[in-house]
Design a protein around this nucleic acid. Structure first.
Lengths: 145, 145
DNA sequence: TGACATTCGTTCGCTACCTTGCGATCTTTG
DNA sequence: CAAAGATCGCAAGGTAGCGAACGAATGTCA
């Protein structure tokens, strides 16, 4: 956290929150959080999805996703029905209101472009490689301990 | 979020949370969160600090810091007193218990090492440069909008 | 000096992340 | 088949982040 001398770790935090802030600000008029947007995005692209699979796709803990889905159901954007096959599972579907809202939502790709456009491909590739390696190492270490 | 094809943005999130998870797991036996640790770290290094300055140093919103300080005060690790000079400001000081706990805390530098040791300096520099540039662009964009 | 603006910390309400523990429901196995 | 184990979703409780609104203290300036 020392000024002008920040570590890679500190920059990943800053960058993550800066992107999130812009995303949240863009979605605020629609009363949507960033993770809620990802849920709609996935359902709009991939169609009805079992909650467990959605959790895996978005890398969210069951408990976290549970709350987010509850919020979206309360807003009437997503419908949660029990799948006939396995009574433990819940099938998630966009409601008509959800589909309508999704169509009205602005395109968020400008965020990624604002952040990374014009940066050399090689540098982006290096960044991804470093972050992926670091992430894998950290996760391995977490699992062991 | 699409596997095997993740964007830089997705990796910054993953990496940030992986590091945080390891930090949280290490601090759990001491009943301390990662941001609480940063507060103690700053107070131990820099001595008594005005709350406003601490917020700037750690880049936390006043509202966020307010809650974290309240938690640390409740735990008896930090003392919050009104500075005589400006009656609006609060001066933060480590209590004796806080100093004792700080001495008992394990060294966390192994986390950074686990993540980044052995990676070429040039690659780390590139990563920092990319993340810093992206962060600055995103923040500029947020301020304008 | 008096009116207005700014700053500092708090509180409230929200998103989103986690762990733990629970009940219900499969699945596997003795 | 029954018992044991695994999995799914939920609820509760904790940490950490945000914006908005507020009171008290302080600055500013006509």
């Amino acid at each position: 956290m020392e000024d002008e001398h920040l570590t890679v770790g500190a920059w990943t935090k800053r960058c993550y929150f800066a992107g999130r802030a812009l995303m949240d600000a863009t979605l605020r008029p629609y009363d949507l959080g960033s993770t809620q947007w990802y849920v709609l995005w996935h359902l709009a692209r991939s169609g009805p999805t079992v909650q467990r699979d959605l959790g895996r796709a978005l890398e969210l803990e069951r408990a976290t996703l549970s709350g987010i889905i509850a919020t979206l159901v309360r807003k009437g954007l997503v419908q949660q029905s029990s799948d006939g096959d396995d009574q433990r599972q819940r099938l998630l579907t966009l409601t008509t209101a959800g589909e309508t809202l999704w169509r009205d939502l602005p395109d968020l790709s400008f965020i990624h472009q604002a952040a990374f456009d014009g940066i050399a491909e090689a540098d982006l590739a290096t960044t991804i490689r470093v972050l992926r390696l670091a992430t894998e190492r950290l996760q391995t270490r977490s699992r062991k301990a």
